[in-house]
Amino acid sequence: MDALYRLEADKLDIFLQSLGPDIYAPVKTDAIRFQKISSVKEADLTALADVPVKDFFFRQREQLFKFTKGKIATEIKDAPFRIFFGLRRCDLNAVKHQDFIFIEKYKDPYYTAQRKNTLLFGYHCDEALNKYCFCGSMGLEEYHDIMFFDKKKYFLLNPGSKVGQKIVSEAKLKRAGTLKKKDTIPKGTDRLEKKDISKLFENSLWEKGADECLSCSACTSLCPTCYCHEVKDDVKLSDLKSGERTREWSSCQLKSFTRVAGEHVFREKRVDRFKHRIYHQLVYFKERYGVNMCVGCGRCITHCPTTIDFVSLINKMK
């Protein structure tokens, strides 16, 4: 799938609108978030969305089931057909990792219902979008229905799936060359110099990072790949045998995350929590599934209140 097709810039809106009513793109409100748009003019493609698309599929809070007097009722509704336009390569790979965990590995019906009628349209970065991007260090792959390369007067479209190919063919777009591997990686994004940190666990610099850490969980909430959650039950006051079970995002940065019976907390020390996140992202996931979990989007740095740049921290480690 390396064919390129040409779409004139002024035809982009018609092209998207012709595909369905529910087109989502990054829009600048208080922050840049994915929202439904009626014209592509509303989209802000100048920066990486502050909030990734994660919460459309793996929702912050999700009711798993209701229970009434010993009976369980699950209500899962499929989300409508939606197109997400303007996803960067990092975020596309993040969806890939979440798809792998929630659909392939654990067959999670809630995530699947939100995700399955979705098309992913990428918007390619020619170079690092901001100084914290490091997608080029993470060995990302192609994961899109269509990737858009912005050439100002026109776009080059690269279909990456059967549906993407079908859309491009039906729109009768003209072939315009072939995508080269080197053009898929944004320039200036290979910022993480050490690709294997497994031997650095005892390095004293981790303490330096943790000293600045507020354990606030901004990093994991805004990380497009983090999937940790907790499960809660709540009953009705009018009937203590009825209620609902929900799941809610959680974070390894919190003490409560590893609290077990007897109030024992496994990762009591801040530095252990701080390291765990980075080790899960760069080491543990890879050990189990063969790819980095982290996609190098840099949100856990740009949205960290104290801007802890763990990439330069690692680069400094001896």
């Binding site: 922050a31 909030v51 912050q60 507020l214 969980s217 901004a218 909430s221 995002w249 974070s251 003490k255």
Partner: peptide, 18 residues
């Protein structure tokens, strides 16, 4: 006893501290 930030992020708020 999680910090308020946890629920704040769950609500999708943009961080005022930042």
């Amino acid at each position: 006893h999680n910090p308020v930030c946890v629920e704040c992020r769950l609500n999708g708020n943009d961080c005022l501290l930042i």
